[in-house]
Each structure stands twice: as structure tokens, then as C-alpha cells.
Simulated scan of single mutants.
Amino acid sequence: MRYQQGNATEQERAFVEQYYRQFEQEPNLSDTYTGEERAAIESRNWERLMERVAEPAPLRVAGRARFLRRWGWAAACIAVLLLAGTYYWLVKTSPAGRQQAVIAAPDPAVAVTYIRNIVLPDGSRAVLQANSRLQFPPVFSGRAREVTLIGEAYFDIVHDHAQPFIIHTGNLKTTVLGTAFNIKAWPGQESVEVSVTSGKVRVEDGKQVSVELTSNEQITYQTAAATVALHKVDAAATAARWAQADMIFRDEPLEKVAAAISKRYNVQVSFNNEQLKQCELVASFSGTEALETVLQTLSAILNIQYTRSGNQVVFDGAGCGEQ
């Protein structure tokens, strides 16, 4: 191809580069196909190109050189279009390609090795412990808002009498109307713990256990024996202490804090003023706060500003507490 050989005209080179630029931002998902599948697709498109090139050109004597140059330019255009079409087909029609267009964040139903804060369809919030999974529908449309937890999570549930919130953990079902609480239910664990920070929940196993908990109460449910023990605890101080991991900062630069926030809340953090990255701060969060609360706190500490649009957060200001 003349573009690859460096013999293309300015017009031809501009055309080719314009098409390639359209796909620079696309995720490289062609590896979802096997080598044989990719080879078959490329072979099929190459055959189509050859068929077009092999078509007899109209007979023409005068201006033959100019005509051939136009035909060579047309063949180059066809090749680029076919290559671009092949790339688009590989990326956009693959299952992974379709999924990437919809799911920007790691799926809560898939375990990851770090703690993450997620927002549920009704606006309720959950903090998932590392290696935990939470399954829920895109929209809570039934009589109840039902989720399934495997592992450990802290919940802060939006109040709704008409549509109670239900968490399934093995044999246990925890029902709430609007409260904050922690559930620990790891696979293979002999017991399940439910600790209430505020509000009221009902825990039941569908057989003989049905217990209501209020603030600073915790039950330990023995799975094999189907028995429970009720305890008084300082739930805010102990139940979800794990959620603080990576959210306590001592003389840390804002760049490192931003990286922790980005990972925990699945947002992209950038800086209009690069000097802000080196501003050090001391801050301690419970790890259960909403993202907006964390951003407001950081802004107040450093006397800076931030803007948020979707999952994009931008910090701006003079830097390090300056006016």
C-alpha cells in the first residue's frame, strides 16, 4: 500500500490518518477472537478488496496516467475502509465490545482485591470489602429491593416503606426500611454477623430464627446450628472498621490521595494546577462516606476547589492552602 511505503500524496495520507484517528480511543478487544477467527475475517475482507481491484477499468487513451492515479487512489480508499470496517466489526460486535460500552466500572458481582464504594439503583450506598460480591438488578422494580451478598459489606440504605430493602446471605435474609449496618457472610464461614449502626433491621432464616436489631446491636448467627446470639456493640467504631483501609492519610500528597479516591469510588481525578499534586494533608475517613463528602473535606483542608461531572473530578486552585 502506498501509505505504508511512504509514497502517498498529501491528500491520500490525510485520508488514511483521518480514518485511523477515529479508532484510536477504542478499546483493543480484538483478542476476544481466536487466531483462526481473526485470520478468517482478514482473509474474507482481503478477497473483497482483490475483487474490487481486479474489476476491469474502462478503456481510455487520453489522460490514461491521470486515470490510473485516480484508480490507485480509489483502491487505497477501499482498502482503508475495509480495514477500518474489520476493526470496527472485531471490536464493536464482540461480546466484550458491547459490554465495555455499557459497564465502565468493575461489576460488583465480580470480586476484586480492593475495597470499593458503589451506589445502588435507588441511591443507597454500599462499601464492599475486598474479595466480596454484591448482586443486584439494574432497577429495583418489584415489591422489594433485593440483593445478594457474598462476603462483607457496609450498607447505607435509602428509606422507603413501600419497598423494603432485603439482603440475602446464604440462609439468612436481612430486611430493612432505611438504616446503616454491616454484614459479614463469607463462604465457608461458620457464622454470619449483622451489626446495625443506625435504624432497625429484621434478620431471619426462613425457619426458626427471626430477630429485630436496632442501633449498636449485633447478632451472630451460627449457620450449622441455626442459632443466634445478640450483643451490644459500638457499631460505628467496630463493625465497619475494615472500610477505613486506604482512607487514612498522614502527610500524604494529594496525588496519592486522588489515586486512592479514584480506585475506591471509580472516578477519574485530574488537576488543572499540577502543583496541587504535591500538597500534603492529614485526613481520616471512615470509608463509608459519599464521594461528595470526601471531596468537600479535601477542598476545605487545602483551600482548593473541585468540579465533578459524572465520573470525572477536577481539582483546581492556587495550591497548598494559598489564597
Rank of each mutant, 00 (worst) to 15 (best):
M1K: 03
Q5H: 12
A8R: 01
A8M: 06
T9M: 00
T9P: 02
E10G: 06
Q11S: 07
E12I: 09
E12K: 03
E12C: 08
V16R: 08
V16S: 09
E17L: 15
Y19D: 01
Y19M: 08
F23V: 13
N28F: 10
Y33C: 02
I41E: 01
E42M: 00
E51G: 00
E51I: 09
R52F: 15
A54R: 15
E55C: 02
R66W: 10
R70L: 08
R70Q: 14
A76S: 15
A76D: 13
C77T: 13
V80T: 07
V80D: 00
L81D: 14
T86F: 00
T93E: 14
T93P: 01
S94C: 10
S94G: 15
R98N: 07
R98F: 06
A104W: 07
A109E: 01
A109P: 04
A111I: 06
V112R: 14
Y114F: 12
R116P: 03
N117H: 13
V119R: 10
D122V: 08
G123F: 10
R125Q: 14
A126T: 11
A126K: 02
V127D: 03
Q135E: 10
P137F: 02
G142P: 05
E146W: 00
E146T: 15
V147Y: 06
Y154L: 01
F155T: 06
D156P: 10
H159S: 08
D160N: 15
A162F: 05
P164A: 13
I166T: 14
T169H: 03
N171D: 15
L172I: 07
G178T: 10
A180L: 08
A180R: 09
F181W: 12
I183H: 02
W186S: 06
Q189E: 15
E190G: 09
E190N: 14
E193T: 15
S195N: 08
S195C: 12
V196T: 05
G199E: 06
V201K: 05
V203S: 02
E204R: 13
E204H: 11
K207Y: 09
S210K: 12
S210Q: 14
V211T: 12
E212A: 14
T214Y: 05
E217D: 01
I219L: 11
Q222Y: 14
T223S: 04
T223N: 08
A224L: 11
A226M: 07
A229Y: 04
H231S: 13
V233H: 11
A235F: 05
A235M: 03
A237N: 11
A243N: 02
Q244L: 09
E252F: 01
E255R: 13
E255G: 06
V257M: 06
A259H: 07
I261F: 13
I261D: 05
K263S: 04
Y265M: 03
Y265P: 04
V269D: 01
F271N: 04
N273C: 07
E274D: 15
L276R: 05
E280S: 11
L281H: 03
V282M: 01
A283F: 04
E289S: 04
L291E: 04
L298N: 00
S299T: 08
S299L: 03
S299P: 01
I304Y: 07
Q305N: 15
Y306P: 04
Y306S: 10
Y306A: 12
R308H: 07
C320I: 11
G321M: 02
E322H: 13
